[in-house]
Simulated assay, not measured.
Amino acid sequence: MTGHLIGTRDEWLIARRELLAAEKDLTRRSDDVARWRQELPWVRVDNTYRFETDHGAASLADLFQGRSQLLVYHFMFGPDYKAGCPSCSAIADGFNGFAVHLANHDVTLSAVSRAPLAKLREYKQRMGWTFPWASSFGDGFNFDFNVAFTEEQQREGKVEYNYERGGHAMDVTPVPAPVAEFAATCGTDAPTYARDRPGLSAFVREDGVVYHTYSTYSRGVDSLWGMYQWLDRAPRGRNETGPWWRRHDEYATR
């Protein structure tokens, strides 16, 4: 026997309409926040970043692929990882479909990671992905956008992530079990794993000049995580006590 509230169809409809009003308020508020996001001042990017891509060496401007807007997903795949982060992998599972539509709306979606291109290509093939993925190996791009940190920064507690210093689960001592577990699945230890972080950065190119317009980190990328948008509408919601997801080729067949 279920312990959940049971009601008639009429009772459900009354409750649903009350929820609908709240959902509409949330949608309008989300629209307001989106406009606020677009009104942020642009910051000119003068640094010459260099990436390796499937099409050869590239600058940040080249990653736009001729479009005026660029969305970069900062994918956790450090130089010493043997596989990409499971969480980033779950998020990236949706990129193939989105990238096609964005490309036809003047927006290029690209992942960027610090691992060498050969590692990214091998993992991309394993996952069956086709979206653009650039390597910033040896470049300062990830460090400048606060998604990569040095061992010294980590040791001295100078990691500034998600617009604050410290306080993130990856910076806690002792290391939380999920962080250690994810590090192991990437073939590395927790400190090495934690020197890379997830995030999203947006850029625009106008009159040949590239500007940084927006960045978000940590749970700021939650809305990009397609499976959670579905789970939030499922009867039991996220229904989790800790990380339960795996890379899509690691689940037992059901």
Rank of each mutant, 00 (worst) to 15 (best):
T2S: 13
T2N: 12
L5W: 14
G7N: 15
D10A: 13
E11C: 12
I14M: 09
A15E: 14
R16W: 15
R16S: 08
R16C: 10
K24M: 11
L26T: 14
R28W: 13
S30L: 13
A34R: 15
E39Q: 12
V43A: 13
D46Q: 14
T48Y: 15
D54A: 08
G56W: 07
A57T: 15
S59Q: 11
L60T: 11
A61T: 10
A61G: 14
Q65V: 13
G66E: 05
R67K: 10
R67I: 08
Q69V: 09
L70D: 02
L70K: 02
Y73I: 07
Y73H: 09
P79C: 05
P79A: 06
D80M: 00
C85Q: 01
C85K: 01
C88K: 03
C88N: 02
S89R: 03
A90R: 05
D93Y: 09
F95V: 03
F98G: 02
L102F: 12
N104P: 09
H105L: 15
D106E: 08
V107T: 11
T108G: 09
S110L: 05
R114S: 14
L117R: 02
K119M: 06
R121L: 08
E122M: 06
K124I: 06
Q125H: 14
Q125E: 05
R126S: 09
G128W: 08
W129Y: 07
T130R: 13
T130S: 12
P132R: 03
A134D: 03
S135I: 01
S136F: 02
F137Q: 05
F141V: 08
F143G: 07
F145S: 01
F145G: 02
N146G: 11
V147G: 01
A148P: 04
A148R: 04
Q153V: 04
E156N: 15
G157Q: 04
Y161I: 07
Y163E: 10
E164T: 09
R165L: 12
R165H: 10
A169T: 12
M170E: 01
P176T: 00
A177G: 08
A177Y: 08
P178E: 01
A183F: 00
A184Y: 00
T185Y: 00
C186F: 00
T188M: 00
A194C: 10
A202I: 02
R205I: 15
R205G: 11
D207S: 06
V210E: 06
Y211P: 03
H212S: 06
H212E: 04
Y217Q: 02
Y217I: 04
S218M: 12
G220L: 03
G220H: 06
V221Q: 01
S223F: 11
W225G: 01
W225C: 02
Q229W: 08
W230R: 07
R233H: 04
A234L: 08
A234M: 13
G237T: 02
G242R: 02
G242M: 04
P243Q: 11
R247E: 03
H248G: 10
D249K: 06
E250A: 05
Y251N: 04
